[in-house]
Nucleic acid binder design. Sequence first.
RNA 1: GCCGACAUAGCUUAGUUGGUGGAGCGGUGGACUGUUAAUCCACAGGUCGCAGGUUCGAGUCCUGCUGUCGGCGCCA
Length: 454
Amino acid sequence: MIWKIHFDMMSNMAKQIWISDIQDGNYDDSEVEIKGWIHRFRGSKKIWFMVIRDSTGTIQCVIKKEIVGEDVFNLLRNSLTESSLVIKGIVIQTDREHGRELQVTSGKIIGSVNPEKPYPITESAMEEAEGGETEFLLDKRHLYLRTSRMTKMLKIRSSVFSAIHSFFRDLDFIEYQAPNFVAGAVEGGSTLFEVPYFGRKAYLTQSWQLYAEAAMPALERLYTIAPSFRAEKSRTRRHLTEFWHAEMEVAWASNEEIMNYGEKLVRHISSSLIDERSAELEAVGRDLDKVSKFADMTFPRMKYDEAIEILQSKGVDVEWGQDLDYSKEKILTQDFEVPNFLTHYPKIAKPFYHRADPDDDKYVLCHDLLAPEGYGEIIGGGERTWTEKEILERIDEEGTPRDAYEFYIDIRRYGGVPHGGFGLGVDRVCAWLSGADHIREVIPFPRDSRRVTP
RNA sequence: GCCGACAUAGCUUAGUUGGUGGAGCGGUGGACUGUUAAUCCACAGGUCGCAGGUUCGAGUCCUGCUGUCGGCGCCA
């Protein structure tokens, strides 16, 4: 009974027709009711034009006083941008600019806009702000989400998330959740957000990995998409303090095999976007041929030592043993058409959980995937140090206290196996595949060292 | 943590060697029967980020503060 009442209410409010369906020609010459928001308007005393927006697109509505009558005409004519409404009309095909139009027969305003506080985001607010990165638009982010560029970015983002889930689930991976409150660091100690925790200190997690390794002997193939937090005061177009991290962990796997998963995942995301979001990609200015290459071409692999040689041959001042910072990454990737793997970093440049190369223990079995066009590192991963003896040696070498990693060491004490995994920066992938100028363009409410609002 | 810029109406901005701040968009009123970033006329809207200083006089010059933006390091 209660269910039925609820259902009836829902069916009254539920939207029947989307604007994209009308523009696709499914309702030509018939009367339809659409629900949406006023995007733009113009007109005269007897005829009024409103472009109505919903989540799927826009359509121009033609309102003639002689058809709708004076009351409805004046009501609609006096309504401002972003008023919400329900409007009825006949779908007519025209050869004018915006495809089909609605010859309006009636309409009512649902949520009005006060003329004393009109919608603040105007054309001029955006003309100097490709991508919406002015201070004003960042302050009005909750309203900026409605603009067509941001809507397209959010749709692209949704497809990236969906592609990651389908990739892992099609391979029978188990989705597995780790806590976001943690007691210690995964990487260096300086990047943790400290939060009060009932009189103690806790931290926001930087990575799912350590907890995933705990479940590796139980699930063998596991993945997640979850936020990670890093308290770095980074001021670049590639960094957020809260970012979405797609991570995976596999038992019985080598660095080589983990890389194969990473390459297939990134190519799968690229081809999914081509299938699902070509229109959106083009609308935000991305060249589809480039994205197709990311989907179709194999990703070259290069050892750290080769990268150093290439850089030195180009006259870059770099010594063996240094981690490759962004300025060097950029020089290395500037001629790339597709992402490239960089493997076998010196042990001294990487943390203890990376497994030393049995062939030459100056190196570790790890990989970074560097995106082309300066978008930076999109994957970091590798084989884990998996025996008790080796993990204790590596922890001691780094001077890290063992206590903090007791549970991590325990995993090796009870049936340790070779295993590995990687972390992929989902927001970075979204920025790269959409060709965004800044990582903020692809996440609804970006968080960085200077901004936590709105 | 380091380096570099910027701050004028709701928004985007002009503002000369220091002499009482202009425009476009948006808003309000009006004109126009097919516009499409509509057009045209009129009106309203500003402690020039904050606090000091120099000067007869500061949006403009100097100092400090705050906020924001960009770049580096760190990484996804």
